[in-house]
Computed example of a mutant assay.
Amino acid sequence: MKVKQHIKAVVLATALAASATVASAQDKEPIRFGLCFDLSKSYTFISPQVAQAAQDLAMYTNENGGIEGHPVEVIIRDHGNEPQRGVECYEQLKREGVFLFNFLSTPVTNAVLPRAMKDGSVLMQSFVGRGDAVDGEVFEWVFPVG
């Protein structure tokens, strides 16, 4: 019986802590993630689904208190798998306060990489980009995924 009571107490405490965190998540600045994906040309077989999954994860995260009380905002734009449009997307989202980016395209990722490194922006490479970016001493803010 004591084990069940202990478990119930832990679950109740967790629920109370989560609800308090959700309330405070509304008061803090959002953490903005920029997803510049190809939503209109080559990668339309996968990028809309990945974008939707990111939005679903942000919603779930926000319902559970955000990230250390900060709500998560996912901003999704189309670059059409064109490097110049990807660079424009990066620059625009950077002005909007985004600091973490994912492009889901090797040509676009490679075009944005020098700017992101110079700016200190976090760049995720989800199965794309440069293979040598795994060297964290050279590519300090680039995170290959997959």
Rank of each mutant, 00 (worst) to 15 (best):
Pro48Met: 03
Gln26Thr: 09
Arg77Leu: 09
Asp135Tyr: 15
Val3Trp: 06
Lys4Val: 11
Ala25Ser: 15
Ala53Trp: 05
Asp78Leu: 02
Ile76Pro: 13
Val11Trp: 00
Cys36Asp: 07
Gly86Pro: 08
Ala51Leu: 12
Ala25Gln: 12
Ser42His: 07
Leu123Glu: 15
Phe33Trp: 10
Val10Tyr: 03
Val145Lys: 08
Thr61Met: 05
Glu73Tyr: 03
Phe99Asp: 15
Phe101Gln: 06
Leu123Asn: 09
Val98Asp: 04
Ile46Asn: 10
Ala116Phe: 15
Glu68Pro: 07
Ala15Phe: 09
Ile67His: 02
Gly146Asp: 14
His70Thr: 01
Arg130Met: 12
Cys36Arg: 08
Val142Ala: 05
Asn62Pro: 06
Tyr43Leu: 05
Val10Leu: 15
Gln49Met: 06
Ala111His: 11
Leu123Gly: 09
Asn81Ala: 10
Phe33Pro: 00
Gly86Gln: 07
Leu93Pro: 07
Gly120Ala: 15
Gly136Asn: 11
Val72Tyr: 02
Ala54Leu: 11
Ala58Pro: 15
Ile67Phe: 02
Ala18Gln: 08
Leu12Thr: 07
Ala116Tyr: 15
Gly120Lys: 15
Leu39His: 02
Met117Phe: 05
Gln49Ile: 00
Gln55Ile: 12
Ala17Ile: 15
Glu137Asp: 10
Thr44Arg: 04
Phe45Asn: 12
Pro71His: 03
Cys89Thr: 00
Gly120Arg: 13
Trp141Asp: 00
Arg32Glu: 08
Asn64Ala: 05
Arg77Ala: 10
Ser105Asn: 12
Thr61Gly: 04
Asn102Glu: 14
Val142Pro: 00
Glu73Gly: 00
Thr14Pro: 03
Ala13His: 03
Gly80Pro: 01
Lys41Asp: 05
Ala13Asn: 03
Thr61Phe: 01
Leu35Asp: 05
Ile31Gln: 05
Gly34Trp: 12
Phe45Glu: 08
Ala23Phe: 03
Asp27Glu: 14
Trp141Leu: 06
Gln84Met: 11
Gly131Met: 15
Lys8Trp: 06
Glu68Met: 05
Val134Arg: 11
Phe101Ser: 08
Lys94Phe: 07
Ala9Arg: 12
Gln84Asp: 12
Ala13Trp: 00
Glu137Cys: 04
Asp27Arg: 10
Ile75Thr: 10
Tyr43Arg: 08
His6Tyr: 12
His70Cys: 04
Ser40His: 01
Asn81Gly: 02
Glu96Met: 05
Lys28Tyr: 09
Leu12Asp: 03
Val50His: 03
Gly34Thr: 13
Gly146Glu: 14
Asp38Cys: 02
Phe139Glu: 00
Val10Lys: 13
Ala111Ile: 14
Gln26Tyr: 11
Gly136Val: 01
His6Gly: 02
Gln52Met: 09
Gly97Asp: 01
Tyr60Lys: 14
Glu68Ile: 06
Pro107Val: 13
Tyr43Ala: 12
Arg77Val: 10
Arg77Tyr: 04
Tyr43Ile: 02
Val10Gly: 07
Thr106Ile: 06
Gly97Thr: 01
Met59Lys: 14
Trp141Glu: 00
Gly65Phe: 13
Asp78Phe: 01
Glu29Met: 07
Asp119Lys: 04
Leu104Gln: 04
Asn64Trp: 09
Asp132Glu: 13
Ser42Lys: 06
Tyr43Thr: 04
Phe99Trp: 08
Glu82Met: 13
Gly97His: 02
Asn81Pro: 04
Val128Leu: 01
His6Arg: 14
Pro83Val: 11
Asp78Met: 01
Phe37Val: 02
Ala9Gln: 14
Glu68Ala: 08
